[in-house]
Design a protein around this nucleic acid. Structure first.
Lengths: 229, 229
DNA sequence: ATAGTGTACTTTGGATCCAATTGCAGGGAG
DNA sequence: CTCCCTGCAATTGGATCCAAAGTACACTAT
């Protein structure tokens, strides 16, 4: 405690269960553990250097979040979505995010506009660097900067959950360079509509934006179910 | 095994963690563990006759579901909603259930109609018997019989989650006899609209129905935060 | 050859033990 | 009298051990 201690940037070493949960979330979202993969407690434990107990608790946490599925005495598997479920998730997102945007737009501050702009730039930057993890993170940053000011934390939480479940597939989508270029220009269009205050336009652009993802994903998912190594 | 063995009515002894999770869910929903209560692992363990390990896993599960909240080294507490969060949940339900109903109504079979009718009767029966647990269960049965045929399992799952978070407050609401009578007649009105195939009418009746709950809850919640013993 | 069975191995489930963190109570200094 | 510091009790966090269930595979009998 000699001198500096960044006022709030300090992150105390979390408990093992929390750390394990975060790591598993990351691994699942990034596609490192593709949908359908079995997660062996022992393996995770030894890889992260902890005992099985915190691993089991982390797994239970993720189970509750719907990221993995569990059958007694058989274990945990990364949740798998077929096309119809994927469509369903996007349809629900359409509904909820439209509502969120409607409530959010009137409250957008100058800071939010900056954040949106930076989100776009971060996406393009990650695009250049070919960094998938950062790309999905930046993409999220943009989209949530848009809806977070809606003042409905619960709603945001649910939407986040929906994003989470499709994350493993989203990174699949971003693998395609063509899709990534499309994203850039779409984001710029959306921002333009936001700045001009045209709510309906924003919502319909977002719907199109999602529709694009859906289209590519449907193609990508038609044949191969998972096993993307 | 002399003759009948209800084709699927056999329930093998679940694992302890699953059983504990179910029991905790019940206790929370029924108001036995009011919002804000701390849940001590040791206590639960000894009450249910298991060690702390399965209890901890059950708690983690419920945490993921959002039913309880967790802070490292401090423990688990039953989630607490203030009025604004409660309103938010109902607003989201409005949105999602309206969509579900719209998709469900065209698919309702004769069996579903019977199920709805029985749901109503079960509510009234529980009302007479003054059985709160059964009342909420029957109420749920009615409402989900209406939306479950929408063919969107994910959507249903989310809606169930929303119901779950407000369950502790719902039982608070049903404590009031006046509210319970209102529910009966509203259910009958809704069923009538369903049978006549008037989708918009169903949806607006449901909105009113929820509005009633909201009104009572707002009153009940204004002063006392929790500690409903 | 194949279906069924028994056995060994892997993995998960649960209990007990010990360590680490927190909150509180009591005591002492200013 | 107030504030801070120290130490104790309660509770959670994690590791290790053993039990139970499931799985794979070889072996046997038809």
């Amino acid at each position: 405690m000699t001198s500096e201690q960044k006022t709030s940037g300090f992150e105390r070493p979390k408990t093992a269960q929390v750390a394990v949960a975060e790591e598993l979330r990351r691994a699942i979202a990034s596609g490192e553990l593709p949908p359908g993969t079995q997660i062996l407690q022992e393996r995770v434990a030894e890889q992260l250097g902890v005992s099985r107990v915190p691993v089991r608790e982390a797994l239970k946490r993720l189970e509750g979040e719907g990221r993995i599925s569990y059958t007694p005495h058989q274990g945990y598997f990364v949740s798998k979505l077929d096309i119809s479920e994927l469509l369903e998730v996007y349809m629900i997102r359409n509904l909820l995010e439209a509502e969120a945007v409607r409530r959010s737009l009137p409250h957008l501050t100058e800071d939010d506009h900056v954040e949106l702009q930076e989100g776009i730039l971060a996406v393009e930057e990650a695009n250049r660097k070919d960094d998938l993890t950062e790309l999905t993170a930046a993409n999220r940053r943009f989209h949530f900067a848009l809806i977070e000011p809606c003042g409905m934390p619960r709603l945001i939480r649910i939407i986040k959950g929906l994003w989470d479940t499709t994350d493993p597939y989203r990174s699949l989508y971003f693998t395609d360079a063509r899709s990534r270029d499309a994203v850039d220009s779409e984001h710029r269009q959306i921002l333009k509509a936001i700045l001009s205050g045209d709510t309906d336009q924003v919502i319909s652009l977002l719907a199109e934006h999602r529709q694009g993802t859906i289209g590519s994903l449907t193609n990508l998912l038609d044949g191969n179910t998972s096993t993307a190594s």
